[in-house]
């Protein structure tokens, strides 16, 4: 049972406070059921979890770090996309 032959899985958990599933880390497991159990044992030990997703790491399509200038840099200069130029009506409360 070598680690290299064991598939890698990404783990997402949804905490009790109602937020969306959040990526918390990864682990090795032979199949989906064992990945779910390992995720439960490794990432939910302190009792704040309502739901777990495990996803094969190989199923994730990632952006290329070398392309970050093309992908993300252009938005840095477009400050008008931030909603900071508007007066928020009092009735809206916290945004």
């Amino acid at each position: 049972m070598t680690e290299t032959a064991t598939p890698l899985w990404e783990v997402f958990v949804r905490p009790r406070n109602g937020l969306a599933h959040r990526h918390v880390g990864s682990l090795h497991a032979h199949d989906a059921m064992m990945a779910l159990q390992a995720a439960r044992d490794v990432y939910t030990r302190r009792g704040e979890t309502l739901s777990i997703w495990v996803v094969p790491s190989s199923a994730i399509v990632a952006s290329d770090p070398a392309e970050k200038d093309m992908m993300f840099e252009p938005t840095a200069t477009k400050i008008y996309r931030h909603p900071t130029f508007y007066d928020v009506p009092d009735d809206v409360g916290h945004m």
Binding site: M1, E3, T6, L27, H28, A29, Q37, A38, D41, V42, R45
Partner: peptide, 10 residues
């Protein structure tokens, strides 16, 4: 494995 080490401890 590391994962099972934690599982057995649990």
């Amino acid at each position: 494995t590391l994962e099972e080490d934690i599982a057995l401890a649990n």
